[in-house]
Design a protein around this nucleic acid. Sequence first.
DNA 1: TCTGGGGTCCTAGGACCC
DNA 2: TCTGGGGTCCTAGGACCC
Length: 425
Amino acid sequence: MFYAIVDCDNCYVSCERVFHPELKNKPVVVLSNNDGCVVARSKEAKQLGVKAGTPFFQLERLFPKQEIAVFSSNYELYGDMTARVMSIIRRHTDYFFRYSIDEAFCHLNEMRFSELKAWGERLHKEVERGTGIPVSIGIARTKTLAKAATWFAKHYAGYRHCCVIDTEEKREKALRVLPIDEVWGIGRRYAKKLQAMNLKTAADLTSYSEGWVQSMFNINMQRTWNELRGIDSVPDEKMTAKKSICVSRSLAEMTNDLNALRPHIANYAARCAEKLRRQQTAASVVSVFLYTNPFREDLQQTFDTREITLLTPTSDTARIVSAAKECLRKAFKHGYYYKKVGVVVTGIVAQNSLQTNFVDYDAAHFSKIKRLNQVVDKMNKLYGRETVTLAAQQYPKKQSFADAIRHEYRSKNPTTRWSDIIILK
DNA sequence: TCTGGGGTCCTAGGACCC
DNA sequence: TCTGGGGTCCTAGGACCC
């Protein structure tokens, strides 16, 4: 069996470019929420030396002479575009699962090199034709090697967007070229540690014994070591079922006002409930956290969190919002300026296997609430996200959830918003 | 002035129990 | 005077991913 990983190139930038073809071959970046820092860069922006995570306010100072196109992040657009990419991938394989917003792993049966290569090149073409988004494809016997293959597909045009590692010779050659810090599973910290020991490529790592790797690092590095040697060690299940759901934001402005935090927390809690329902699960623990701004060294710092365990797991918006509001009230401390706040739900179970607590359980009420939430989800899907909300989710001054954070350079939503689509007569 | 968001896993150490 | 030992559970912190 082979794994293929299909990865959208510079995903957010590619999504924006579909509707701005004039930006092809130009430096483009996409910013995080609040227009905080750079989260996606086009190839040209990378070549200019724009680093991931650069704060936006530094960009102009660092690149005064360059014309760089800048977009605020527009997750509605990226979600819709990548869903289209995924549906095309689905048609090309018997089994696949989404790994992140812009990546999917596929299982491929035993095929010869020429067939694997042709499969990848065909998929690339169809995704590009169907969505306008370029993808890179890596194929190998383990997920880590497939990831390595996509690195080659992206870095060498000769692979025509698809690199296959199907023999021992190719595996060994690839490892000798792949820099240690490009290995999937080795981040900045470990890369530094390995480089300090004079290990520079993936092959340098695999030349050491498993015992050495285990004693110097941990079980994760041992898995990576095995995967690089061609032994499948990262099971699919490890990467699918979600154990927690979190919705959080940095606020546009710090606040020490409990009332100002309430609508934020209510909205994040409501979004958690929606996510639970979408994946047909329920949660039994609701928690809220409040951070001050770590960059403001002149101010007192605090990290406050509270959680509540519900008698029965639920995905009901009203229930989760009210629990979150209670957490907020208990966690909040006067005299601190909070900057980042969020809601986390854990203790997640499948909705159809709900362990109900009989003290808390009323079948008729339960099914009413379930229907209510279904109707709300449907309306919000049809007419836009905040068509129906709880009063607690309302911001003063009729702001919407999306307006409550800064998005100065946001593109329109040509694929999902009625108002932006030309109506045919 | 301005510094993202959403996840997972492992490990060490403390609390607690018998 | 002398200060057990093993198991489990929880939490915080640190590492990783996109």
